[in-house]
Amino acid sequence: MSKFLAAGAIVAASLAAPQMAAAQSETVKQIEERGTLLCSGHNGSYFGFVEVNDNNEWKGLDIDLCRALTTAILGDPTKNQIVPLSWAQRFPALQSGDVDVIIKATGWTMGRDTEQGLQFSLPYFFGGAQLMAHGDLGVTEASGLAGGTICVEAGTTIERLVANYLNTENIEHNMVSYESAAELRSAYLANRCDAFAAWGPFLAVLRATEIDNPDAHVILDDQLSAEPIAAAMRQGDENFVDVVNWMLAALLIAEEEGVTSENVEEMAATPPNPRVARLLGAEPGIGERLGMRDSWAREMIAAVGNFGEIYDRNLGKDSPYKLERGLNNLWSHGGVLYAPILD
């Protein structure tokens, strides 16, 4: 019902002020009135994306993106409120207004985009199902696993993906399902399976942290799927999607241009090129066209850093996980992340 109201409000607004270029988003207006941004957290942690540190504070890649968005809209990274949600609960919670946006390792699928009434931002992370095998088998790709035993978590999309992939490639295999990730892990470590399948970043984190000798295990080259991970929003507020998209774009542009949390003020004072000048609000445009402050990107980068800094801190080289950038690097460094044009 609130969806209809929101849709009605947008129709009314567009009839009343068709000439306004910088229409402010309804959601942003609510956030400003409330004074806090409601983001999704996870009860029970999700390595590198959502965690809680020893001082009971949230951290992780998804949390930092939420902080970035909070700074962009409200000018203060501490003004967000993380609402812990389970996987099943996240979409209904978004529709009922318990959160403003879902940034929670959520894949962009057609069903979610259409039937579930969601809108997705630019993807900010790419990860898919992969296989990890014992190093002493000497395999580097899935074809080497012919006749072997592959363990998966029961009832997940991964289970179906593995079966599809291996059957299409005509690789004979025995599949064993386990109820929980912990069981699966101990079965694999006890050599009851030759390989085990899971979400790529999860495998990498596991290999880096929980296995005594990481070199004794290989993550195979085969990408069984590549899921674009994006922020999800309620349908019907296009302007809010613009805000989230440009928040992500600004983080990527900052990385491309070498703008970091440390040099951002310098760069804003003496921009090396017109693109940086526009990004940091030295030339007007980036704020007004979104109905926001011209300084939003500058404040955001000062608070959380550019995309590379966020990645390195939570998943990459400055984190315990040491996850390679891989696909999640800028296009200019062999990845698939790129920003739209800031004109």
């Binding site: 942690s45 390595f47 590198g48 942290t209 996980y321």
Partner: peptide
Amino acid sequence: VTIIGFFDILASGKTAFGTAEWAPYY
């Protein structure tokens, strides 16, 4: 209640080992 996003003691426990440093000691 953990499935509707509450941090009851069991969910908090899971969060406690949900970070790289403490993950092996669940």
